[in-house]
Design a protein around this nucleic acid. Sequence first.
DNA 1: ACCCACGAGATACAGTGTATCGGAATTGAT
DNA 2: ATCAATTCCGATACACTGTATCTCGTGGGT
Lengths: 226, 226
Amino acid sequence: MGVVWERPEPSRRHRPALDRAMIVAAAGALADAGGLDAVTLRGVAARLDVLPMRLYRHLDSWDDLLDLLADAACGEIELPDPPSGDWRDRLRALAAATVAVARRHPWYVPLLGSRPPYGPNGLAYQEWLFAALDRPGLAPDTLMHAANAFLGYLVGQLHLELLRVPAGATAHVPPEEQLRYLARAVGDGRHPALARLFAQGRQLDAVEAFDAGLEIVLDGIAGKLG
Amino acid sequence: MGVVWERPEPSRRHRPALDRAMIVAAAGALADAGGLDAVTLRGVAARLDVLPMRLYRHLDSWDDLLDLLADAACGEIELPDPPSGDWRDRLRALAAATVAVARRHPWYVPLLGSRPPYGPNGLAYQEWLFAALDRPGLAPDTLMHAANAFLGYLVGQLHLELLRVPAGATAHVPPEEQLRYLARAVGDGRHPALARLFAQGRQLDAVEAFDAGLEIVLDGIAGKLG
DNA sequence: ACCCACGAGATACAGTGTATCGGAATTGAT
DNA sequence: ATCAATTCCGATACACTGTATCTCGTGGGT
């Protein structure tokens, strides 16, 4: 146990108070640096210069941290206040604010699709969305369906976007080889439609694809809202 | 090391040949039983009555198994051959076949959103989708945007669906308490739109929500396809 | 001034995916 | 048919996860 003299002074009690916000901030920083895999209990604790088990004083479990992290990212989404324009403009603004955060924090995307959006920021987000679509006399079902289509597209497209850019986030397979494989696989004669597109050589730009899809969804919603 | 006599006879060589298909099948069975978390290298090996490291003869890494699993699930999606009806009918059929598999194998949803869809079945799926939308004279960009909107909605909505049904898949929080929390949180006066919907008491049915959203997206696509 | 209870600290455990290494079994060649 | 070579199985070990538990030093209440 060591002798008294060389034991560090118990200057505790003045330690930085360590609250949930600090923990989430540390986790977010780790995620920004190394992706979701990089955020680990011991990692967060180390970044806060604290022993791992101390985090359990503020978290019930690891999943709690993911929920907090997701809601924190959601809180970074800038909801225009007051909302302006017609519902199309408002939804466009909401989508833009959301993708901005998702592209800044790619780790937010899997969380967005896997954690219940019931934190304070998640609720505020939903409130804003429903308020943006609602209008006197609108049938509740129509409202929910429109909001759902919007959210569904948003979440899915963000996932797809993430799948495209590294073109194989799984391993250290160089994107170039991935392309060669695709060319080979698609050119086997049994994928004429894909081969045609592939021959076109037109790479699908992420932001263009997102915007075009969004307009499609908005058009569809417009059909229901009248 | 034990004596020779009590060492089991080396009757090997007649062992079941253990190929990728068996491994994927075992993994799928585990996932069906206990979710994606239940499929683990040692678990799969145990189910095949094989030592864990033997799987590495057929897999380069753990991620490989997830890719194989995703593509296997994708292969379960029944693509009507030949495709029939107009493009709307075809896309509806494709969506229906996809959700059928996703609801049968909930573990497929996260894979769908996180693994590149470039396996043989994934490519076949995409080929079918593009072929279903394509027509002579259609601009390639329009084709891609339509397919993208469709896929984006599909992937996202399936994720949302998964988020709704357990209403908190994260922990053993009883759905009832989750509801009580929501009622409290939404009724704080700062969420009037949500509160209104909540008061309506109308629960969002999964299949109804999916179908309604799909029609919205299809309407939007129709606007682009003319 | 005493006691008690709370929280920090360390260690330990059951898991995960993966690397490595010795030896057995199968294959190919002489 | 015998020997050499190669393949691949079996086991152990490692680094890493999240988490439980147990022991104290410490601070605050009476």
